[in-house]
Computed example of a mutant assay.
Amino acid sequence: MNGRARLALILGLVVPLTGILLPLQLMAIRKSGRLRRRLPQTWHRIVARLMGLHLRIHGEPAGTGDDGVLIVCNHVSWLDIVALGAAAPVSFVAKEEVSGWPGISLLARLQETVFVDRERRRTAGTQATRIRERLAKGDAVVLFPEGTTSDGNFLLPFKSALFGAAGMQAGETDFPVLVQPVAIAYTHLHGMPMGRFDRPVAAWPGDIELGPHLKGVIEKGAIDATIIFGEPFPASTFAGRKALAAHCEQAVRELVSLALRGRTALLSGSEKR
């Protein structure tokens, strides 16, 4: 099947799938039950399979559905949303401008995305509080602290502003918050290992338009993504957001390095797909 036919087929299946799940998700959000987390995961799993996105998952997502978990992950591409959304029942923190993207904004709202304006530093405390409210509901919330996407080969420095959502200071929260470092890397294309010059196939740096990149990924298909869930720890382990951010950056950097070098066999636990 050629690329255009693949694109037409996938769109022809994803649109009705979304139409079927949309009213169910709206009802689930109103009732605020666990189904509101599981329906988006089902959508992402189906879409990942249709796109040919193969997941290699190491470790386990933290959280039991009762205690909130702040998932701290590197950010490579819009594909991260599909991959992580298929791997675990999560919501995301996204930049405010995404709330205005046609189509994408609807999907983001159905997954209860928290929109933040990273340019308005004075409101960082308020935005962290909004994330903390979701953690209080027992949700798993994914934070991309690089603030933008990378080329898939290196991490960008982590920004600490929104780490305040973990509420490390005494009295900031009356519930336990777990923090879990997570790494995502795109490693194979049609079964062949990607080198550093091949990763732009999956990586989506900020200067590339979304539409053409999405079209290119779907037409190529058969991309392997490795996701490593690191060891979770209580946010209260650290006294402040900057120390927490620095620790998470180092932990994620080490996990990404393992994934890119194909050293995941060193990790405990078996690989899942």
Results as ranks from 00 to 15, higher is better:
1 M>A: 15
2 N>A: 12
2 N>E: 14
4 R>D: 15
8 A>I: 04
11 L>K: 11
13 L>G: 03
21 L>A: 02
22 L>S: 11
23 P>D: 05
25 Q>D: 07
27 M>Y: 13
32 S>W: 08
34 R>T: 15
35 L>D: 08
39 L>V: 05
40 P>R: 05
40 P>G: 03
41 Q>K: 06
43 W>C: 04
44 H>W: 13
51 M>Y: 05
54 H>N: 14
59 G>L: 00
60 E>S: 08
61 P>T: 03
63 G>N: 10
66 D>N: 15
66 D>C: 13
67 D>V: 14
68 G>D: 07
83 A>G: 05
86 A>L: 13
87 A>F: 02
89 P>V: 01
91 S>R: 11
96 E>S: 11
96 E>A: 13
102 P>S: 13
103 G>S: 14
110 L>V: 13
112 E>N: 02
120 R>N: 12
121 R>Y: 04
122 R>F: 03
123 T>Y: 08
126 T>I: 03
129 T>M: 07
129 T>A: 13
131 I>R: 05
138 G>R: 04
141 V>E: 00
148 T>K: 09
148 T>G: 09
153 N>A: 07
156 L>D: 05
164 G>T: 05
165 A>K: 04
166 A>V: 04
169 Q>S: 10
171 G>I: 11
172 E>Y: 12
175 F>N: 13
175 F>H: 12
180 Q>V: 01
181 P>G: 06
181 P>L: 00
181 P>H: 04
190 H>W: 13
191 G>C: 05
193 P>Q: 15
195 G>F: 06
200 P>C: 07
206 G>D: 09
207 D>M: 02
210 L>S: 13
212 P>H: 08
215 K>P: 13
223 I>L: 15
231 E>D: 07
233 F>N: 09
234 P>I: 06
241 R>V: 07
246 A>P: 01
247 H>S: 04
251 A>Y: 07
251 A>V: 06
253 R>A: 14
253 R>W: 07
254 E>V: 08
256 V>C: 14
258 L>N: 02
264 T>M: 08
266 L>H: 14
273 R>T: 14
